[in-house]
């Protein structure tokens, strides 16, 4: 009886979060499950790495998830989405439905995308490209040269490129002549 209640509850929750209800993933590193999307919120559970999860939605650096029969929030950085196979999920929510448009065009769903040929900017098309200066000049029609106009309330912030950027690029400043994903070139 109790199980049935939870089942119904989960169904209810799922239906109210239809947009992302079918995103599944795993905990990538041991993580706390919080009651709210804040670091000082109560911890509901400790989730070890590889715990399977269902992602309900994202809010900034947090995912609201269901895992180990509980629901709460984990840091985005502790989650990996599960790999989709070639076949994509049915599109239910319109805009931006995960993967549904991949290699098939927006809105078309449930195709084996791996079998679809790439059209536009494939390696071969790039190799054979004839420079198109007219298309380049036509971009001027859409350019915005100073003020971006209505920014719908976006508030600029002052944030340095540090830390991270400088330290990281120093680490890797020497241009690697060959990296693993270049090797099949030539």
């Amino acid at each position: 009886m109790k199980q049935l209640f939870y089942f119904a509850l989960i169904l209810f929750i799922s239906s109210t979060n239809a947009l992302a209800a079918d995103k599944i993933g795993v905990i990538s590193r041991d993580a706390n499950l919080y009651a709210k999307p804040f670091k000082d919120a109560d911890t509901i559970a400790e989730l070890p790495a590889t715990t399977p999860i269902i992602i309900l939605k994202r809010k900034g650096g947090w995912y609201e998830i269901k895992a180990a029969e509980k629901q709460g929030w984990v840091r985005l950085t502790r989650v990996r989405l599960n790999r989709q196979s070639g076949a994509t999920k049915e599109s239910t929510s319109g805009v931006g439905e995960l993967l549904s448009g991949l290699a098939t065009g927006r809105g078309k769903s449930s195709q084996d995308t791996t079998a679809t040929a790439v059209k536009g900017l494939s390696e071969e098309e790039l190799r054979n490209a004839e420079p198109d200066l007219d298309a380049l000049n036509a971009l001027d029609n859409y350019a915005i040269n100073d003020d971006a106009g209505d920014n719908s309330g976006l508030q600029t912030r002052q944030i340095d490129y540090q830390p991270g950027t400088a330290a990281k690029s120093d680490d890797t400043a020497t241009p690697a002549k060959k990296t693993s994903y270049e090797e099949d070139e030539e």
């Binding site: 989405l81 989709q84 995960l98 791996t114």
Partner: peptide, 15 residues
């Protein structure tokens, strides 16, 4: 994370 969830063999991701 979205990219990571796509099969890397997918031809759309080749380049």
């Amino acid at each position: 994370q979205t990219l990571d969830s796509i099969d890397p063999e997918n031809s759309g991701l080749a380049l």
